[in-house]
Design a binder for these strands. Structure first.
Lengths: 349, 349
DNA sequence: GTTAGCACTCAAAACAGGGGAGTGCTAATA
DNA sequence: TATTAGCACTCCCCTGTTTTGAGTGCTAAC
């Protein structure tokens, strides 16, 4: 990224001015406007020369001749990387109140998406934490009726899952007790990745004639992971995109909204975010950079949060390229630590 | 509804022709078009006279002078009530295959919404069955760690819910066993409405010093009903509305899409559908008739399905007023009996 | 009762012109 | 040498006007 060094101080100032102005107005910005807007007192002509240079370098472009300039993706990139000053002031207190104790994780997350959307006026998504790296805390088998038992599986962080298992015979109480003992002593505290084939074989051996049940239980465990694989994603404020003319033509709107409806694409986004980079960094995808093709006309800002024990989820904001990056990143950061805090302080809620 | 009798045979034919033509093309239909389109050989002039009458009666109207006529809500109403001939032929076999055994109810319903959407090109929703009138099948308390027990509650139809309960003390195995016995013998097979205050008092009395736990469990049961109250709704094909110009202007599109996002409005729709009328009838709401204000420019067609034991859900299609009512109603009927069949034949899947 | 014909209406498309914001270039200026 | 003023030019966009054409209502003839 040696590109930036090739830009003079003045060019940077002008570029920054162009972008900031464009973020506010959404209109192409011309040289005259800039000559007043910027502190360095230059005539429009000078600015024009600089702008021509910037255009040659690919940071800005004209939608058509005799229009002002608007930032290119490359320009935005430079902006978020270097030019943007973080306005750290006034850490918002409001959200504290909004995220009041909702008693279920899902509720909290849905709420978070909502708060975020109303706070930013963009479309938002929050993915529920995945428990791939989670630990088994407790397993309980119980007879429901003659032919069915239910396996209750509690994961770290008190995520509970159940699965009905069909059994041909009625199992005696002692048998169930024994199996429960066996399962819990062996598997308790184990990470899901730690359950190896060898371990399974050993378990089955100890279960004797009931090895089949053990098999079913482990299948259930596996399936639970699998089920969790198609992750839950909460969205809000989708229709906010109609507020931005450049996104609200039929074509774009349809693409973006269907990306939100078929969660598959959002899942890709989450996966990408979780995979790449530092845990608590904020990531910014501009245009094509996003791993979601339908969002080529948008910018996407994401953050990762953590509910302890390696359960991570993603928060994301989707808006026009000319989004208010500073505000968004600040808000996202706040919410991120918000979520981090709530659950690390109070994991049972 | 004596209105219809006042219409001559010929007027009915013409009205029907107008509507059918409009359904296909989406364009206002004029007298010339009709004079060829209809079998009764009449000149455009004659048709014009009849159309003038129909307009006076409120069945059709002109979007502006010198445009063709389009059906009014009243016209559509008459059409779906009387004029439309059911094309019963070729009961679709395809869907059978599509709704292949998904092993979770949610999956099936989500799938159903998808199939429906791709089949009709409209927006669709499927509500998960509510279990308000459901019965308790099984309750199991288990100790998770020193301070927590988990209550697993199985409802009829094998809907499983759990709830972590905080207890100050560690309960002995015998105590748990006793409580489990007590809960199951007393509550087993009961409908949720049948658990009265008197019953609760009696339970607590029998539980003695552990009455508090019983209280928590019952709270959990109550909460589970409550949680289920904000029902799950699956949607698909929201963006199909962009296919219909009359709905895809910013204003309408935004309204409809946000109705789909904030599920509250869809819930109203479901409630209305479930409340009103015969179980297996198909209901058609045209324009204002729908209980959802955001859909005043749409038509909504709904059906109720049943998963046995009084658990009912709703399937709905939302499209433009000029939707292909016949196809939609037929498809809906098929899917309805599809769902009915799957779960009544094979309730455990 | 039906039809042909005609005058009329009005939305939408096609067209034309003016205004204006913005540019690039050149020549003058500090 | 960098900056600026000035000027010609471009081209979007707005506005108003015209044209077109589909469709109607009405009247008179069949």
């Amino acid at each position: 990224m040696a590109v930036d060094t090739s830009l003079s101080e003045r060019k940077l100032i002008i570029l920054k001015a162009i972008i900031q102005n464009y973020l506010e107005t959404g209109e192409p910005v011309g040289s005259r406007t800039l000559s007043k807007y910027t502190e360095l007192n230059l005539s429009s002509a000078t600015i024009r020369n600089e702008m021509a240079d910037l255009e040659d370098l690919g940071y800005i472009f004209q939608p058509h001749t005799s229009a002002g300039r608007i930032p290119s993706d490359k320009g935005y990139r430079l902006y978020v990387d270097m030019l943007m000053e973080e306005k750290e002031q006034e850490i918002t207190e409001r959200e504290d109140a909004m995220l009041e104790k909702a008693d279920k994780v899902e509720k909290v997350l849905q709420q978070a998406a909502k708060v975020l959307a109303s706070n930013t006026n963009y479309a938002t998504m929050v993915s529920a934490p995945m428990n791939s790296r989670n630990t088994l805390k407790f397993i309980q088998l119980s007879q429901v009726d003659e032919e069915q038992i239910v396996a209750v599986i509690v994961l770290g962080g008190n995520v509970i899952k159940n699965k009905i298992i069909e059994v041909g015979e009625t199992l005696s109480n002692e048998t169930l007790l024994k199996l429960n003992m066996l399962l819990n002593t062996t598997l308790n505290g184990m990470s899901i990745d730690q359950i190896t084939l060898g371990l399974i074989a050993r378990l089955k051996e100890q279960a004797g004639i009931h090895s089949e049940v053990i098999g079913h239980v482990l299948d259930a465990v596996a399936e639970i992971i699998h089920v969790e694989d198609d992750m839950k994603i909460y969205t809000s404020g989708t229709t906010n995109i109609f507020k931005y003319p450049e996104l609200s033509d039929k074509q774009s709107a349809q693409e973006i909204i269907s990306a939100f409806e078929e969660k598959q694409q959002l899942e890709d986004l989450v996966t990408e975010t979780l995979a790449s980079g530092d845990d608590h960094a904020i990531q910014v995808y501009i245009g094509d950079e996003a791993p979601v093709k339908n969002m080529k006309d948008c910018s996407v800002v994401t953050a990762t949060y953590e509910l302890g024990e390696g359960m991570k989820g993603t928060i994301g904001i989707i808006g026009p390229k000319r989004m208010d990056y500073e505000h968004v990143m600040k808000t996202l950061k706040t919410l991120q630590s918000e979520l981090d805090a709530i659950y690390n302080k109070n994991p049972k809620e």
